[in-house]
């Protein structure tokens, strides 16, 4: 199922030369069960280093759940996951894995500044105390995303788009080799999306592997090497990115697609997304 990447030679040496052959993500027959229901049902996914992969699918198709299981947020019921060559667990080089969740955690109401939130991105499985240059690195990460001035603002008071950029800065601050983003552009205006696409492009040029969940390919289109489409927790397309349909982004287009569908899911080519054969 592996589609060769059309991107420049992956990880060709700007930062890393170790383990050149290991895929950034290697998932075999992953099943995830949540609340007694099978959400992800037998997904195989191998993402070679340096690839930019878009994970697409209707709402409720299990994209977030798949990604969360790949990162160890929710347990994998069966199957195996390797990240950057190591089995999911303490041996993964967590300092090189960046994750941007769909939205900011609500928390219990204690204020936290952008500096504190981004600084928490410097901690990982192998580092429980922040480095000395915590402030400088958090500031630099926020400035990369054009929100350096928010350093001392409470994140609770920021707008959705600003919060999103703080979350992206938290993932970038540790200089990831694998970056996983869950709908990073939903609810963000188009100019910001384009600025964000430029950030991802420069990361890709530096050899970073990117797995991005998208609702609309939109401005990401030129970056995407490969698209995987999920439906009812299964991969129904793996290959070239689908062509964006003209009417796809319009208001009358119905995106909702209930997951708890009583009809057994077909695996035929009746995709809602216009997939090129």
């Amino acid at each position: 199922m592996l589609v060769t990447s059309s991107s420049p030679a992956p990880a060709a040496g700007s930062r890393t030369t170790d383990a050149p052959a290991a895929p950034a993500i290697d998932a075999r027959d992953v099943h995830v069960t949540l609340g007694g229901r099978p959400i992800v049902r037998g997904v195989d996914l191998s993402v070679p280093a340096g690839q930019v992969l878009a994970l697409l699918g209707a709402n409720g198709s299990g994209k977030s759940t798949l990604v969360r299981s790949l990162l160890g947020v929710v347990p994998v019921a069966s199957g195996s996951v390797h990240l950057l060559g190591a089995p999911l667990g303490p041996r993964v080089p967590w300092d090189r894995v960046g994750y941007v969740p769909q939205r900011m955690a609500a928390g219990g109401g204690i204020p936290a500044t952008a500096l504190e939130v981004v600084g928490s991105g410097l901690l990982h499985g192998r580092r429980l105390l922040p480095p000395r240059d915590r402030r400088a690195r958090a500031r630099a990460a926020l400035e990369t995303l054009g929100v350096g001035h928010l350093l001392h603002r409470r994140v609770q008071e920021l707008s959705g788009g600003q919060q999103q950029r703080v979350l992206i800065a938290r993932a970038l601050v540790r200089d990831p080799r694998l970056l996983v983003l869950d709908e990073p552009t939903s609810g963000i205006d188009l100019p910001t999306q384009e600025a964000f696409v430029r950030t991802v492009a420069s990361l890709r040029d530096a050899g970073t592997t990117v797995l991005v969940i998208l609702h609309e390919i939109g401005p990401f289109a030129p970056l995407i090497d490969r698209a995987v489409v999920l439906r009812h927790g299964r991969v129904v397309h793996d290959g070239a990115p689908p062509q964006a349909r003209g009417e796809h982004g319009s208001a009358e287009h119905d995106h909702t697609h209930p997951h708890a569908d009583p009809v057994p899911p077909s695996e035929g080519p009746d995709l809602t997304l216009g997939v090129t054969p």
Partner: peptide, 22 residues
């Protein structure tokens, strides 16, 4: 002494798990 990691886990448990934090 451990306030940073205690904060990281208390603030966003999902991100903490995805960072391999215990």
């Amino acid at each position: 002494g451990l306030r940073w990691v205690l904060f990281a886990v208390s603030h966003d448990e999902e991100f903490a798990r995805a960072s391999g934090l215990p």
